[in-house]
């Protein structure tokens, strides 16, 4: 399993648009993606799960990724945050 933290830097937090992009990306991999904020866990492939975490600008999120393609998935998701969801 791969575990890493990211910092939310999108102005409006992890709102609908970035959440949709995140879920889309996570859905491209077989690995199970879990996103954690303050002990609240959400399925990284469920947009509503992500949105109900209520991640705002400045929050830290932990990702847990487990599965055959976990490394590729981790790299792709980190890139999303690095690029601030601008494709």
């Amino acid at each position: 399993m791969i575990r890493f933290d990211v910092h939310v830097t999108a102005a409006g937090g992890l709102h609908a648009r970035p959440a949709a992009l995140l879920v889309n990306k996570a859905g491209q991999f077989q690995s199970k993606v879990t996103v954690i904020k303050d002990q609240k866990k959400a399925d990284g492939k469920s947009i509503l799960g992500i949105m109900t975490l209520g991640a705002s600008l400045g929050d830290w999120l932990t990702f847990e990724i487990e599965g055959a393609d976990e490394e590729q998935a981790a790299a792709a998701l980190k890139e999303l945050f690095d690029k601030q969801f601008e494709s």
Binding site: A16, R17, A20, N24
Partner: peptide
């Protein structure tokens, strides 16, 4: 993109 989010729901 908002509509994409609706589709994702």
């Amino acid at each position: 993109e908002i509509l994409s989010a609706h589709i994702a729901f």
